[in-house]
Design a protein around this nucleic acid. Structure first.
Lengths: 220, 220
DNA sequence: TTGTCAATTGTCAGTGGCTGTCACTAGCCT
DNA sequence: AGGCTAGTGACAGCCACTGACAATTGACAA
């Protein structure tokens, strides 16, 4: 019997992982080629050779599978943010975290699906009303998470001081515009969105990168 | 035959309007008392004594009816923004427009449903995932509209200069946080949300209210 | 190896949002 | 009065999603 190292989680577990990956891959492929609405869950299930019921055991909704990869990207960003040195101000930290995340996600994504497919998916999300709505809700949850991280970095209480949430909301707003504009523009590559991120943040930065710890902080 | 003045749009038209208003009122009442998900379209239709099919002829989805009043509020804001004097900077204009809108919407809403019901609806939207998603997507469309208004005011081209969209995104982000915090807080009145709006915008203002027309404007 | 347990899956039936179709009713207009 | 047509109801059907139960299969111990 082989020692169950960290790379041998048992047959059952591996099978599950394979099914999950297959569902993601097939879903994104169908979504990006035929469109999200024109793809039925039955179709996906059939292509992966599982029952429709099983699909819903892996993903609680058709929407969720569309965000499976996106979720990894977001987690990468949060990790990057937590890693930023504490002496950085909130905006610098967020800014550097996004850019660092864009540098690293390529590898992370490639472990599940081709980066190309992820980019197409991202574009599809932006242009499918139902998915755009879901995306924005997810972003908003994300912002809450980030606001808490920022607050912790600054030693503040999110519920007592509105500044973390406000700053993150403004930052998030810019990130969303970046995503939209990237989708509309011609350069649909990872480098493209990274460059755009940098450029757009430059517009907000000069106006917002004040240090909160300095005197003159606004009242509670 | 009575002269069809502006207040006499024909029996058929009036009947339609009454059906529509009834659908809105009943829907919001049911949504806010039983919850959105636990209210079926059949239920609404039955209460108004129309067929389910007719409901969908008035509103393209169950979601849409939930935003019928919200839509009026948004339109009020855009009107207020357009009315702002051109010498005001973008942020001052948006800020004053929101506050002016909060002052006026009371009357506008009351023509259709009690303001009380609208406030309860607003709260319900914030706390129902499916509606929150829809709300955010609508907000994002709203921001695009506003960005164009702002750009026109400043004599800019939205597609050439990213600043209008970025500024509006940041502003919109703060407005959304305001809505959320209002929902979580104790003071669920129109005055409450107006005050909170003012307070939160004060936090962003000092950092962002620079004049774009001054020298030192960022590059393209 | 084999039997048992528990996790995973398939099948089936049902709910609810939403759409197309078609016949019918009722306001409108000459 | 009578034809026209907007608005409606009734019906059938698609699809996302869920609960319940039975069948299967990997895990693990005897």
């Amino acid at each position: 019997m082989p020692a169950p190292g960290p790379s041998a989680p048992g047959l059952r577990e591996r099978k599950k992982q394979r099914t999950r990956d297959a569902l993601i891959q097939v879903s994104l492929e169908l979504f990006t080629t035929q469109g999200y609405e024109r793809t039925t869950v039955d179709e996906i299930a059939e292509a992966v050779e599982v029952s429709q019921r099983t699909f819903f055991r892996y993903f609680s909704s058709k929407e969720e599978v569309a965000f499976a990869v996106q979720r990894m990207v977001e987690e990468e960003f949060v990790r990057a943010l937590v890693r930023r040195p504490p002496e950085e101000g909130p905006f610098d930290a967020m800014r550097h975290a996004v850019l660092a995340a864009w540098d690293d996600v390529g590898d992370v994504i490639d472990r599940i699906v081709p980066v190309e497919l992820y980019l197409k998916t991202f574009f599809m999300i932006e242009s499918t009303p139902a998915l755009l709505a879901a995306h924005l809700r997810r972003s908003s949850e994300m912002e809450e998470t980030i606001a808490r991280v920022v607050a912790r970095r600054e030693g503040l209480d999110v519920d007592a001081d509105p500044r973390p949430r406000i700053a993150v909301a403004a930052f998030g707003g810019v990130m969303r515009v970046t995503g939209q504009m990237w989708g509309k523009g011609p350069d649909r590559t990872l480098e493209g969105i990274r460059a755009l991120t940098e450029r757009y943040l430059d517009h907000l930065g000069p106006a917002l990168s004040l240090h909160w710890r300095e005197p003159g902080a606004p009242r509670g």
